[in-house]
Amino acid sequence: MKAVLCRRFGLPEDLTIEDIPSPVVGPGEVKIAVKAAGLNFPDVLIVQGLYQLKPTFPFSPGLEIAGDVLEVGEGVEHVAVGQRVMGIVNYGGFAEEVLVPAGMVIPMPDNMPYEHGAIFPIVYGTSHIALSHRAQLQAGETLLVLGAAGGVGLTAVELGKLMGANVIACASTREKLALAEQYQADHLINYIKEDLRDAVKDATNGHYADVIYDPVGGALFDEAIRCVAWEGRYLVIGFASGRIPELPTNRVLLKNSSLVGMFWGAYAVNDPAVMVRSLDILLGWYAEGRLVPHISATYPLEQAAVALTAMMNRQTMGKMVLRIS
């Protein structure tokens, strides 16, 4: 089978496409014939050695896939051979066949194409648990989304509206803001051209944001932390800017606000019931047509490096997909 391989830490252009043996399924595992794989920012980090997880060489990047079940290991009962499924792995998804722990294999709705399945669980799961479980977002509250046209950011806009929030989308270009507007953002802020605090103040009549969703970090965090409302919640989702910011804690104290971390993958280990409930809700909404994933580009497996480079250079909106077979 073909796979994208990382043989040493470096840039996406250093990745190779090679034939490797088909994996052997073990107890509690599911072998999936991959039809599509989603790209996520950790894929860019892991091949450079900048991610918290550093696999043994050689390895394939890729966190989420969709395809057909080829084999099930001992003890696996919730899926069967031939079934259409989504799968989540720590790495290894950019390959024609992948072994996935049974608990991370999710049957797909009948109306979901493979491309949607391959980009669905991580970004929608992150935003849903962040907004509903961690921030306790309520209908009528104001949600400020940074990086609003990115993979997770756009789902936060979409879910925030579905949950009844007043959504302010923040992005760096007119094109990105236009995409957020298509997903029904109520207010648009170009943080390159506008003062973020003044713009949020104007959009909320001086109330500021009850919940701030931040997958960017860096200098944008330094500005956005000043935009949190009284008893507001600031969600730390990630650091796409490349810099992990530091916080003068008096800013949290003065507004009785909360800084709330959100690492979706940790729920699989520490509280999987939260993840299961969330995905059940999300897949129900998808089946009802209430969620519409945005795919900005689709590449063949052989162009994985091109796709990862575009992501690294922040040239994408929504999600990108690799078609594997």
Rank of each mutant, 00 (worst) to 15 (best):
S132G: 10
D202T: 11
T16F: 04
R233N: 09
T309G: 02
G164F: 12
T142E: 05
T56Q: 15
E288T: 06
K193C: 04
Y124V: 05
D19S: 11
P109C: 15
E77S: 07
R243S: 12
E13G: 12
L254M: 13
K201V: 13
I32H: 00
V79G: 08
I20K: 10
F57P: 08
D214L: 09
V25L: 02
A297E: 11
E246N: 14
D14L: 15
Q182Y: 02
F9N: 08
I324K: 00
T316E: 01
G160S: 02
V321D: 05
V211K: 08
P23S: 13
A219V: 10
L131R: 04
M86N: 06
R277Y: 01
F59R: 05
Q138V: 10
R197L: 12
Y299D: 08
K54P: 02
M1G: 08
V25I: 05
V252T: 10
G261M: 00
T126F: 11
R134H: 06
F41P: 10
P101S: 13
A310R: 15
I122E: 01
G265N: 13
L50P: 00
M1N: 05
E18M: 12
V123Y: 02
L279C: 09
T155Y: 04
S258Y: 11
H128I: 03
Y208S: 08
G87V: 13
R134M: 03
T204L: 01
G238C: 08
L196E: 04
A310D: 15
F41V: 00
